[in-house]
Design a protein around this nucleic acid. Structure first.
Length: 637
RNA sequence: GGCUCCGUAGCUCAACUGUAUAGAGCACUACAUUACGGCUGUAGAGGUUUAAGGUUAGAAUCCUUACGGGGUCACCA
């Protein structure tokens, strides 16, 4: 018997080879479709008969019986079959399944392609903004990107994990300016630093970014009230005209429209603030490498990076290569200028550079401002080109970025293509949905952002409380227990965020994420710990003879065999959720088996050893799957 | 408004990309266990897959329209 080729594949081959005998014609390979056998029906493998009905010119039942008889003749692992409406349900004998189990047992990399056997792929994720501490959305991003990288490795790819750090631009100048202006001096005459405040660096900088926004809005409000009181001194006439025009247009409008107009007035006023003017001046100085500004910039960035490092470590993610926008934007600018000469882009009379994408159903897009400074898109072009320079063998870049940027990436990839980069079509935007909270949407302005560090702490603490209450902690050191709580808390969090299809918007319920029942990380971790304990108590697994399998055992082997297919599927779809769903199914089946079938107390040694080996391989696949989604499994809990 | 994504049990999610009676978990109801780890298992109840048409042997899935929701349309990133 051939144990290397799956039973489905064997059936497929037989049908293709003998199609002329069976059907009288050569059949298309795509007509052979398998699907999962429904639980209510007898059988292990299901072949869909409908596609063959025409060729055989008979009813689905007759066709099914004909094909079934033929297959049974050819394959001795087929025990019996049954035709239900258009489905041929084939039962495979126990010997086949046990052989399969033995194949899994001896394969240390079961489910994986041999490492580095395929092309190199770059996976970008995280991509933070140095102004803002990481939040709940970044957790989904980081876990997703990291997991996809692991899954691609499992599929044999070489993977370069990367992030692009958004460390330049007007927004960065805002927090620098705010710190410079508003940070109080302590008794030693120093401004606030992570050292003298004890604040995490990213949190400190984030604080000043918020401070800027606060002061900025206050100033804008003052300007508006000046205007409303008819005080237009110090403002250019064009602004005054615009303000009057907007105010007049409010006449007779509904509430919503008035709010829109008010926002426009606010924007107008914001442009007139000294704070924004100073921030803009700072950006110009930065681009001119003014020493003082540059020093402030590097100092504050170093605070942020050391803060991020702590957070990444807690998350359990890492990177092979970092890109900084401060390095790539110049290249982006050069490319745009080159593209302008080639006629890909055009210049407006004010000197700004654009691309016209209206023929592709998109809009015009700005690439360089009239003052010559770059925008987000320019930087992304530079970064992409830079990456292909650094890694000439890249077969693709995966950008893990939220779906609010769908349009941006559509445009980016199109521009790269128009610039003549053939690799542009290998760029893929791994777009994921927003994370909602039961209390509603996260909004930084309303302070409803859930901080990543806080959330991780909370989850670990709760895991600690639950473990103290229900865990099996005898003989564990305090340190072991802390590690365990981290494993459980972070496992729950990661699993919760990754079990949902990445593309979909999802609801994050903090309480549910650390729930130990249901489709959760700890539920799966528990199954692992329990099997581990079972194996330890067994005193070793002896070789055994084949026996007739019980339904529960057969079910588990089928799920185990599917694992390699699941890994491939997850790689193809860039979806950790595929892995999570499969492992959950496996664990549920294992629990059913465990409940229904005795193991250690089983007297038949063949049965006992088979069940132990089965359990051991379930544990192996749990561990392997969980690793792919970045979750650790505890030996005991 | 243009473009785009989405709408499945009370709630959170599945459904192998078109196939059998649309599945899980939570919550709810009723059970099981002298036990190899009860963070378990079994059973029940809960659905016109937003609506109306269409395509076909077959539709939650594809097409059209409507309704409802998100995102995006910056010389922000």
């Amino acid at each position: 018997m051939n144990t290397k080729v799956s039973i489905n594949e064997q059936i497929r081959l037989i049908l293709i080879e003998n199609s002329e005998v069976l059907f009288g014609i050569k059949i298309d390979e795509n007509l052979i479709q398998f699907q999962k056998t429904r639980k209510e029906v007898e059988g292990d493998v299901t072949l869909v008969i409908f596609p063959f009905v025409k060729a055989l010119k008979c009813s689905p039942i007759e066709a099914g019986n004909k094909i079934g008889d033929f297959l049974k003749e050819k394959l001795n692992s087929i025990a019996s079959f049954e035709v239900v409406s258009g489905f041929l349900n084939i039962s495979i004998n126990s010997i086949y399944w046990i052989e399969q189990l033995k194949v899994i047992e001896v394969d240390p990399l079961f489910g994986f392609d041999s490492p580095n056997s395929k092309s190199t792929v770059m996976v970008e994720y995280s991509s933070p903004n140095t102004n803002k501490p990481l939040h709940l959305g970044h957790l989904r991003n980081n876990f997703l990107g990291y997991s996809v990288a692991e899954i691609l490795k499992a599929n044999g790819h070489k993977v370069v994990k990367t992030q692009v750090i958004n460390d330049r631009g007007i927004h960065i100048c805002k927090s620098m300016l705010a710190w410079d202006k508003f940070s109080p001096l302590n008794d030693k005459g120093e401004r606030e630093t992570p050292e003298n405040t004890g604040l995490k660096g990213d949190k400190l900088v984030g604080k000043y970014y918020v401070e800027f926004d606060k002061q900025f809005n206050a100033e804008a409000k003052d300007i508006i009230s000046l205007w409303e009181n008819g005080d237009f001194s110090n403002f250019p006439s064009s602004i005054i005209e615009e303000f009057k025009k907007l105010t007049d247009s409010k006449e007779g409008k509904d509430e919503k429209a008035i709010k829109g107009i008010d926002d426009k007035i606010k924007d107008l006023a914001k442009n007139e603030t000294t704070l924004l003017r100073e921030a803009k001046e700072m950006l110009v100085k930065w681009e001119a490498r003014d020493p003082q500004v540059y020093l402030l910039w590097t100092t504050m960035n170093s605070w942020v990076y050391s803060g991020f490092d702590v957070t990444y470590k807690s998350m359990g993610v890492d990177f092979d290569k970092l890109y900084y926008e401060s390095d790539t934007f110049i290249l982006g600018k050069d490319i745009v200028i080159e593209g302008l000469q080639k006629g890909v882009f055009f210049k407006k009379e004010d000197g700004s550079v654009w691309i016209d994408l209206t023929e592709d159903g998109l809009d015009e897009k700005l690439l360089l401002r009239s003052d010559g400074t770059t925008v987000y898109m320019t930087q992304d072009i530079g970064t992409a080109v830079d990456r292909y320079k650094d890694y000439s063998d890249l077969s693709g870049i995966i950008y893990t970025v939220g779906n609010e940027q769908d349009y941006h990436f559509k445009v980016l990839f199109l521009i790269l293509k128009k610039l003549g980069y053939s690799w542009a079509e290998n760029c893929f935007h791994l777009s994921y949905g927003m994370v909602d909270l039961p209390s509603g949407k996260m909004k930084s302005r309303e302070g409803t952002v859930v901080d990543a560090d806080d959330l991780m702490h909370e989850v670990i603490d709760k895991a600690g409380a639950l473990t103290a209450e229900r865990g099996h902690l005898e003989g564990m050191t305090k340190e072991d227990i802390n590690t365990l709580c981290r494993t459980i808390g972070m496992g729950g969090l990661k699993y919760y965020l990754l079990k949902v299809d990445p593309k979909k918007r999802m609801m994050f319920n903090p309480d549910e994420s650390i729930e130990l029942n249901g489709n959760t990380g700890p539920f799966i971790q528990y199954a692992y710990a329990r099997i581990n304990s079972l194996i330890n108590r067994s005193g070793g697994i002896q070789s055994y003879n084949s026996i007739e399998l019980k339904e529960e055992e057969r079910e588990i082997i089928k799920l185990l065999i599917e694992y390699p297919t699941v890994v491939k599927e997850a790689g193809k779809m860039y979806s950790p959720a595929v892995i999570a769903n499969h492992i959950y199914e496996l664990v549920k089946s294992f629990n059913q088996f465990y409940q229904a079938v005795p193991i250690l107390i089983e007297e038949n040694q063949d049965a006992k050893n088979l069940r132990l080996e089965l359990s051991k391989n379930v544990a192996k696949v749990i561990k392997s799957s969980m690793k792919l989604i970045g979750v650790e499994v505890p030996e005991r809990m």
